[in-house]
Amino acid sequence: MNLGPHAAFIVTAYIAATAIVAGLIGWIVLDRRRLSRILDDFGAQGISRRSTRADADKW
């Protein structure tokens, strides 16, 4: 594929887009790991939300 005289700009644009999407995915995955670790810690300490004991509509 010939990208013409402006190949650098096209490639940079695609790299930038990929980097932004990768950043979003990385943020979500890392955030999820951190949160589930904290939740597990709470579970290990025996602290649970009221909702898991009684009515299930509370947070």
Binding site: I28, R32, F42, R49
Partner: peptide, 19 residues
């Protein structure tokens, strides 16, 4: 995926306040 994280974040917050 971000919504799931947000729900978990709120649970963490609730648990911290309970604690």
């Amino acid at each position: 995926a971000a919504m799931r994280n947000e729900i978990m974040r709120r649970r963490v917050r609730t648990l911290m306040m309970l604690q």
